Computed example of a mutant assay.
Amino acid sequence: MALKVIGAGLGRTATFSLKFALEHIGLGPCFHMSEVFAAARRNVPLWLDVAAGKPDWETVFDGFQSTTDYPACTYWRELADYYPDAKVVLTTRDANSWFDSVSETIFSERMQGSLRGTPQEKMMQGAVYAPFGDKIANRAFMTDWFERRNQEVIDMLPPERLLVFHPKQGWEPLCDFLGVAVPDAPFPRVNSRDELGEAADEQGGLPPDPETMETFARAYIDELKIKAFAA
């Protein structure tokens, strides 16, 4: 199954909302970092191969019609080349707001420290942190990189293939871009910054054991999906 939609937006740019939206309009399942962890024993080795320069995209995205969030967004350029018919959606937000969000969640010591010494940490180092490395806590560097990186996506893709999008815009621009009907449902809203923090507090971070991680991640996805459409 070839990808039809590639999410180029970085994590913490409403990528969970986009995942649920794409699935709701028939372009799912949608790959997301949560899906990596929900099948960690299968997916982490595949992404380690990607980070090592040996991607098997057909296997990585087997069964998925779309993707958003890390780690796939790191490889938006490669995926756009590999799936030339896929549309690209760039979710974005204010750079300082993004830095605050990633610093308190996915890039925090609370989250990543719990993975230290595991294959998951190695995957994150190669497929997520590689562009900025030890600058991860440097606000000036990270916000500048965020803006330059997003502009590069805009500059490199033809306008007819790219949608720059924020969920506050609702269904219309997304559905018009993808050529699907606007659903009779509220656009999914996910406050995953708070939800992820609460879940991590309960666990003491992310579960380092892959089997436990899978259970945790699948329950997290299911819980967020219910809340996303509750309004």
Rank of each mutant, 00 (worst) to 15 (best):
D49C: 03
Q169T: 01
A86Y: 10
V102N: 00
R139W: 01
T143C: 01
F141H: 15
D201V: 11
D85M: 11
G113C: 04
R93V: 14
R149H: 15
L48W: 05
D62A: 15
P119K: 09
E104M: 08
F64H: 11
G205Y: 00
A40N: 03
T105Q: 01
W76C: 10
P159N: 12
N96G: 06
R149Q: 14
K4N: 03
A80Q: 03
P55H: 06
A95D: 02
L46I: 13
E121H: 11
L90G: 01
W57F: 13
R42I: 09
H24T: 09
P71L: 09
P71Y: 05
Q169G: 02
F132N: 10
G9L: 15
H32F: 06
L196C: 10
F37C: 07
Q125P: 03
Q169E: 12
L157R: 13
E35F: 06
Q112R: 12
G26Q: 10
T143Y: 01
S17P: 00
E172C: 02
Y83P: 02
R12D: 07
G11D: 05
M124N: 07
A200N: 04
I6E: 08
A72L: 14
K122N: 06
L174R: 12
V180A: 00
E104I: 08
A200K: 00
Y75T: 08
Y70D: 08
E214F: 01
A230E: 15
G133R: 09
A80G: 02
L157Q: 12
R193S: 15
T15G: 00
I6L: 14
G170D: 07
L174G: 09
T143G: 00
F37I: 14
L3T: 07
G205T: 00
